[in-house]
Amino acid sequence: MASIRLAVPDAANVGEVIEIKALIRHPMESGHRRGARGEVIERDIITRFECRYLDELVFAADFHPGIAANPLLTFYVRASNSGTLDFTWTDQHGTAWSETSALTVT
């Protein structure tokens, strides 16, 4: 159900800082809105994003209801060795969505 869009280079030079963009489909329901009958719409948000490079956590984010729906992040990683980049989003219930990308470093 979750749609993910990733923009990650597949090759980089050693020491190069690469830009990564990550977009995921999620309503990020804040828990502050009310429905047509005045009832509070329950909070339903992604609370954590992690990017691991060669199994090491290089960038992470904690999300609260102040993050917009369909969260988009742009961040950076310094290329060191060829290997995988893992991206994981986890919601407040512990449900996780992941994507992987291979990076060749020369």
Partner: peptide, 12 residues
Amino acid sequence: NFANPGYLWVDR
């Protein structure tokens, strides 16, 4: 055409 969230639906 990467960040425009409408493309999440186009992809689908």
